[in-house]
């Protein structure tokens, strides 16, 4: 199985021994040994992926990297975070997924209003199975644990990904002050409950609710 290592937080090194990883198209910066690069259609999900990803707007161009040696990946000097999956599911935006073990299965899922509030659309990408994945964030992400009786509330703009069995709900911080334009800028929040991990970046994307 491919081993993922972080090199200075912004470079992902993957050691391959004849096996494969899927990675965002064009994200290889260097490799030694012998590697082949092949673009996968529909985010690696074949024809079904082509159709669903086209429809949901979760477009993802990925390639399969196969070979022996070490391959280094990076994307516009973004911070990279490693995620280990042991049978659970990672929910991440297609834009934030850098690489995943070829043994992991990717798909798309409906997120509803939460997705819309992040400015990411109504669908998100899921990664499930056993193996490692690498996700991108603007600045080093913190991993926050959600336990039963210890829910977590996150700003939609700073949310990157989550894994585990979590329920999400919308929470409004809006008061009459928000209505008269004197809001605290935190009118919309996502509340996570259950058992799992949430990845939060130290930067906020511009979202619909970010200004109120």
């Amino acid at each position: 199985m491919a081993t993922f290592r972080l090199h200075s937080g912004k470079v992902l090194a993957v050691d391959l021994t004849g096996d494969a990883v899927t990675a965002r198209n064009g994200s290889m910066v260097a490799y030694d040994g012998r590697m082949t690069f092949k673009r996968l259609t529909g985010g690696g999900e074949g024809l079904r992926g082509v159709v669903t990803r086209r429809l949901t707007g979760e477009q993802m161009t990925v390639m399969e990297v196969r070979g022996e040696g070490t391959c280094w990946f990076a994307d516009r000097a973004s911070e990279i975070n490693l995620v280990r999956l042991t049978g659970d599911t990672l929910y991440v935006e297609a834009d934030s997924l850098l690489a995943a073990d070829a043994g992991l299965r990717t798909g798309t899922t409906f997120t509803g209003l939460r997705g819309a509030s992040q400015g990411n659309g109504l669908f998100t990408t899921t990664v499930r199975g056993h193996g490692q994945a690498a996700i991108l964030s603007d600045g080093p992400a913190v991993v926050l644990r959600v336990a039963p009786h210890a829910p977590l509330v996150v700003d939609p703009g700073a949310y990157v990904a989550h894994q585990g069995s979590l329920r999400q709900s919308f929470q409004s911080g809006a008061t009459f002050r928000t209505l008269i334009g004197e809001g605290g800028g935190e009118a919309v929040q996502i509340r996570f409950e259950g058992d799992g991990l949430v990845y939060v970046q130290p930067s906020e994307r511009t979202t619909v609710a970010g200004d109120v």
Binding site: K10, V11, N25, M28, A30, T61, D75, A77
Partner: peptide, 21 residues
């Protein structure tokens, strides 16, 4: 795959690579 052109370096030495394209 977006990796059509590659710079191949062989011999003995060190190559410096940046974390961005």
């Amino acid at each position: 795959s977006g990796e059509a052109f590659q710079l191949e370096l062989s011999g003995t030495g060190v190559v410096l690579v940046q974390a961005s394209e």
